[in-house]
Design a binder for these strands. Structure first.
Length: 577
RNA sequence: GCGUCUGUAGCUCAACUGGAUAGAGCGCUUGGCUACGGACCAGGAGGUUCUGGGUUCAAAUCCUAGCAGACGCACCA
């Protein structure tokens, strides 16, 4: 039930009819004709720009064309109360109250499909997100991208697409060697009382390494930890396993569960990297050459060498990219190309990568490789989440990896909680930096939009408790023969915008529209609730603890919508607060 | 020097992707509680949408030239 789509279709139909009897000229493609929500001051329900779009080709003024079209529209529809034409040529439609009764009837009877964009083709999506190095637990910096990826997946799932959520495990390369060494030195510290080399900048200083060391010692008593070379391979596997345990626990605590964890190391061991590079060689995208130093930087230490390069410049990148290190091992980029080939071979229609702002410079090269491999453009969509500015005690809080001075995700959840973290992180567009003020987020008050929305749901629950009805059960109304008041129609109009909200969130991969929408809905509800304070008649329940059908079904739909929206963003709706 | 993102009310941000007189929260200010849960509501003040030019019926939005901020720019992943 998408009233904007319905009326868009109706208007198109009228246009085609007029065009057939030569009363209207249509362009080859009907682009740019929209049905929209008019600004509230116009006292109308839906508006269209059709007259302005078609005026030029028909050589009529928009206002005159609007007049002709609005007459036709009004004639074709009994549910329209009034149509007005407003400069410079908008057509504004106002519905009779009965329209909204029919609307809520349909929504209530088919709530499980309400909001779903059913006209879209069902697709297979792969969403890769988090993919943090398996060298320790997640910290606050990973949090926004993690939630963003999760909710984008949820929106696609809500629209009945197939979605695979994937985590790429970078268990290959120098960072992992340093990490394993750090675990090794901690083991020697514990078992042989040797001091941990504090001044070695390559090693990871964090205390969690000690825990990992303890766990490994406990579980593998038969390993001889005296010689690193002998056990490094085994120790790497064990350390990464321990690390992933921590990461999965962190993810679970913010309500995220990936379908797959793909190992970079396995891609290398299965020769997938070698294969993909041979594949690219065939198409002449790989060559040996040198890269010039960038301008404007301190380039004294720059060494130009002959390297194996990928021609990403052919696909819009600013320089070609290195595939093989001088020690003969693959670069991160090379195995990532293999990983993306692996994704493509699994026949997804669309690949989505969620990246942090600090990796935005990586987008061109990886999408170049996907373009080259898939022989099309735009199969990979990269979504960047901007940085989160942490504010504690009204001051920016800087994290420093070297000192081990950073806030882990576990700290964050313990202090703030899953719901508040998710809601606040999602409440802003991912394109803008986010202020995350600890004191503010914890506050259970008016400053916090999360509680504002949850409170709306809890209030409706309290009404259902008083009339002894189960909020989760369907509400059945025998006759939809009532009319809603203007206060109620305001809410119904907002409800009718829900499919539009989902559509935009889904098309542009912009989850922040959902918390914004829920906030607006909650706001209208709170106003509505307060009407009952001044006027007893406007209360939901009368003295005999009875509720009328119109109010019952309205409350039911609002609560279901809040519940449904909150479940998309992964936030709970408590019945009591 | 180059690339990506951002610039909207005192502050934090929306704005249906080109729509109408640019909207919310906080803060400021005036009012409403022995309550269907005040974690709420009603009203007021507050704007040259960073600047200049362009595109058209229409620009915060698109193009262009600048200014300012954030992030990134080798074999670290």
């Amino acid at each position: 039930m998408n009233i904007f789509e319905n009326y868009s279709d109706k208007i198109r139909k009228i246009l085609f009819e007029l065009s057939e009897i030569n009363e209207l000229i249509l362009p080859e493609k009907l682009n740019g004709i929209t049905t929209e929500i008019p600004p509230s001051k116009f006292n109308s329900d839906i508006s269209t720009n059709v007259a302005m779009v078609l005026s030029k080709i028909n050589k009529i003024s928009p206002m005159d064309l609007a007049k002709t079209l609005s007459d036709k529209i009004k004639k074709s529809d009994k549910l329209i109360e009034e149509i007005s034409i407003v400069n410079p040529g908008f057509i504004n439609i106002k519905f009779k109250p009965i329209f909204w009764t029919k609307f809520i009837e349909e929504v209530n009877l088919n709530f499980n499909t309400f909001g779903i964009n059913s006209n879209k083709k069902k697709k297979n999506y792969l969403v890769e997100f988090v993919s943090a190095n398996p060298t320790g637990p997640l910290h606050v910096g990973h949090c926004r991208g993690a939630i963003l990826g999760d909710v984008i997946s949820n929106i696609l799932l809500f629209n009945k697409h197939n979605v695979t959520k994937e985590y790429y495990v970078n268990d290959y390369g120098n960072q992992i060697i340093n990490f394993t060494k750090s675990v090794y030195f901690r083991i020697r510290e514990i078992s042989f009382n040797e001091p941990f080399p504090v001044n070695n900048g390559d090693l990871y200083p964090g205390d969690y390494i000690i825990d990992i060391a303890h766990n490994i010692i406990k579980s593998k008593k038969n390993i001889d930890f005296k010689n690193f070379e002998n056990i490094s391979e085994q120790l790497t596997i064990l350390s990464v396993e321990e690390s992933l345990k921590l990461i999965k626990k962190n993810l679970y605590s913010i309500g995220i569960k990936h379908d797959n964890f793909i190992s970079e190391k396995n891609l290398v061991l299965n020769d997938e990297v070698k294969k993909v590079i041979n594949h690219l060689k065939k198409y002449n995208y790989v060559y040996k050459g040198k890269i010039k130093a960038p301008k404007g930087e301190d380039n004294k230490n720059w060494i130009e060498r002959e390297q194996l390069l990928f021609k990403s410049t052919e696909f819009g990148d600013d320089k070609d990219r290195v595939l093989k290190k001088s020690d003969g091992s693959w670069t991160y980029f090379a195995s990532d190309v293999a990983y993306h080939k692996n994704k493509l071979d699994r026949n997804f229609d669309c690949l989505i990568n969620i990246l942090g702002a600090d990796h935005a410079g990586y987008i061109k090269r990886i999408s170049s490789s996907v373009d080259a491999l898939s022989n099309t453009k735009g199969k990979l969509i990269c979504k960047v989440s901007q940085l989160v500015k942490l504010i504690k005690n009204k001051k920016p809080f800087k994290m420093s990896k070297r000192k081990g001075d950073y806030i882990t995700l576990e700290d964050l959840i313990n202090e703030v909680g899953k719901d508040a973290t998710r809601f606040i992180m999602l409440n802003r567009s991912s394109d803008v930096e986010l202020d995350f003020d600890f004191d503010n987020v914890i506050e259970k008050s008016k400053d916090n939009p999360l509680y504002y929305v949850q409170y709306c749901y809890a209030r409706i629950c309290s009404v259902f408790r008083l009339i002894d009805k189960d909020i989760k059960k369907e509400v059945k109304v025998t006759k939809y023969d009532f009319e809603y008041s203007n206060d109620e129609i305001k809410i119904l109009k907002k409800i009718s915008e829900w499919p539009k909200c989902i559509e935009m969130s889904s098309n542009r991969l912009e989850p922040h529209r959902i918390p914004t929408y829920l906030y607006e809905l909650a706001s209208l509800f709170h106003s509505y609730w307060n009407l009952g304070k001044e006027n007893q008649k406007k209360r939901f329940i009368n003295e005999n603890k009875e509720i009328s059908d119109d109010k019952l079904v309205l409350l039911k739909v609002i609560s279901s919508l809040i519940n449904s929206g909150m479940s998309i963003i992964g936030v709970s709706t408590p019945e009591k607060m």
